[in-house]
Write a protein that binds this DNA or RNA. Structure first.
Lengths: 168, 168
DNA sequence: CCTTATTTGATATGTTTCATAACGATTATC
DNA sequence: GATAATCGTTATGAAACATATCAAATAAGG
């Protein structure tokens, strides 16, 4: 509390109304900042923004990066499996793959065992881009976040977010 | 590490290949879960989902709730100011206000001092809905999150998200 | 004053993201 | 062998997000 009590104010003294040079005062958030969802969204937007900046030389969105990373760690999976674990609906995944395949970062191959499904695999170029992307993410993006929060807090934050994502 | 060393395995013993009843094994996340942006997005989606569930009886989205809350704490502000502090672009704010005004939760009044701008104010109904909404958020929504994380972790999480949102 | 610039709410428009229904081809089930 | 389920795909729509522009009102500069 920085405001004086009424009894402290001498009515004979001219108080120069301490707020005049304020250019349209900042708004009261009214507890909005204490809403986890609000802070989550705000933080997420900032983080994605920075991700895009760091990844600008490779022209990869967060979603595209996650697809390449998942393919690299799970070769031979089909579209349904990859899309599902990323929370992407299959119809929307098609156009996404069209773009990545058009950039020659991955290939769709008809599976010999089940000729309905496509086996997804990173191309040589796809693996190269992913390697560079992982370096950029680690050194430019995530490193900045760790620097801001400290490694301990950063780890704690990750753990709490995982808890929410899986157990909420 | 739950995997035995090779030297621990007796080659004469039949190991029943511990993975057979797995229906299309879970995918390797390949470090994706350690990406703050990924976990942030996942957690944010879950939280918003729950917010909508809790708010279903009042039919308020997170964005609509934030507008009502901000108006209640900052009466007499115009559209530009409210929209700006919420990170909403003015053109998109118009339709949002049309809906809320159509539901008789707020009113647009031409300002006497500056007849370009609209002074926004909650109606009686708007204040009533907001009061019920705040109760629902506190008792159903945020309470569940605090129960999941514990009050201390919940507070720490809020603080870190605020740090990211403001200083990143 | 009078001209010029800026601001406010609004419209139009486009892009991106997200969600649902349905189809042909293939495979599984009974 | 008929029926059902699954795969990738297309079509389509709703919602969120962004840009350019407008008329009206106000502010600023000469």
């Amino acid at each position: 509390m920085t405001v004086s009590k009424m009894s402290d104010i001498d009515p004979t003294v001219h108080v120069p109304s301490v707020e005049p040079p304020l250019e349209s005062t900042a708004l009261q958030m009214g507890g909005l900042s204490e809403l986890l969802g609000y802070s989550l969204k705000r933080a997420q937007l900032k983080v994605f923004e920075d991700f895009l900046r760091c990844m600008a030389p490779l022209q990869l969105t967060p979603a595209q990066f996650s697809v390449l990373l998942l393919l690299d760690n799970n070769p031979g999976r089909n579209q349904t499996e990859i899309a599902h674990t990323l929370g992407i609906l299959r119809p929307n995944f098609v156009a996404m793959l069209d773009v990545l395949e058009g950039r020659d970062l991955l290939t769709r191959m008809r599976s010999p065992s089940d000729r309905r499904s496509h086996v997804l695999m990173l191309t040589e170029k796809g693996r190269a881009i992913l390697a560079r992307a992982k370096k950029l993410v680690a050194t430019k993006h995530e490193a900045r976040l760790i620097e801001l929060l400290g490694p301990t807090h950063h780890a704690a934050l990750l753990a709490m977010l995982a808890t929410i994502a899986t157990e909420f």
